[in-house]
């Protein structure tokens, strides 16, 4: 599903005078494209995703997802994975994932097969009855991913999904997301603080800057998949994006990386 963001502006009214969180946002995302969004804290990345999924309304401008407005889109079609796993502490792994099913007309037996399939997909077989507080951080995020994927959404919005995880778990889950993309060609928008992650996953990296949140630059990432983080191509984009953030005359980029 294609996604179009046109001249979007978002103002939150905290006191009488509102604060402009997003300004002049224009984005064109093609069907099956993975777009990474990077930007400093508070520049409106989460707000952008909330606008896309209809949790917030735009102040000005238009968002269209296959000719429809965000609030008209069926929740089986667009899914969102949050930074925190946001699991229900009173529901078992099984019940948490089952809760993700947005379709209402699904027969019991099919439901059960579906839930079990996704439990297996995220490698949590044997943990069906565990409660969220009995899981590690990485396992929790897997449950949360399964809960979203169970609808096979055509568009997947990810808000710093792996931010709280250690490097190993993170890389594993990134590869799992790419596997899913290979199979389903899901359109993905992934917000991240991690420039390597942005380059590794995205067909496109969008750099935002704050106050008000605008799109500073878009980079098309021309590296064939599977990508290697240690390749020269990768390093080329890494340097370009770091320069975009920290300016041309930064003393030693290698050092920061």
């Amino acid at each position: 599903m294609a996604l179009e963001v046109k001249n979007v502006r978002k103002v939150f009214s905290i006191n009488k005078d509102g604060i402009e969180v997003l300004k002049d946002i224009n984005l064109n995302i093609k069907d099956g494209e993975i777009v990474s969004v990077v930007g400093s804290s508070g520049c409106g990345k989460s707000t952008l995703l909330k606008l896309l999924i209809g949790l917030e309304d735009v102040t000005e401008g238009d968002i269209t997802i296959n000719e429809k407005k965000p609030y008209e889109i069926d929740s089986t079609e667009v899914g969102m994975i949050f930074q925190e796993a946001r699991l229900f502490p009173w529901k078992s792994v099984y019940k948490n994932i089952e809760f993700g099913i947005a379709r209402k007309d699904i027969p019991k037996k099919e439901k059960k097969e579906l839930v079990n399939h996704y439990i297996e997909l995220v490698g949590l077989k044997g943990f069906e009855n565990a409660l969220p507080d009995q899981l590690s951080g990485g396992m929790k995020q897997r449950v949360s991913i399964a809960r979203t994927l169970i609808n096979k959404p055509k568009i997947l919005l990810l808000d710093e999904p792996f931010g709280a995880l250690d490097a190993f778990t993170k890389i594993n889950l990134q590869n799992e997301m790419l596997n899913i993309w290979e199979k389903e060609k899901t359109t993905m928008i992934i917000v991240t603080h991690d420039i390597d992650e942005a380059i590794y996953l995205g067909h496109k990296v969008v750099v935002m800057s704050p106050k008000p949140g605008i799109i500073q630059k878009e980079f098309k990432i021309d590296i064939s998949r599977p990508r290697s983080r240690t390749s020269d191509d990768f390093d080329y984009y890494r340097k370009k994006i770091y320069k975009e953030f920290f300016g041309e005359n930064i003393a030693n980029i290698e050092y920061i990386i």
Binding site: L55, D74, F82, E84, F99, A102
Partner: peptide, 12 residues
């Protein structure tokens, strides 16, 4: 409210 957002996104 974060859990309620999850449910809203799922169309509950």
């Amino acid at each position: 409210s974060k859990l309620i957002e999850v449910a809203k996104v799922l169309g509950k």
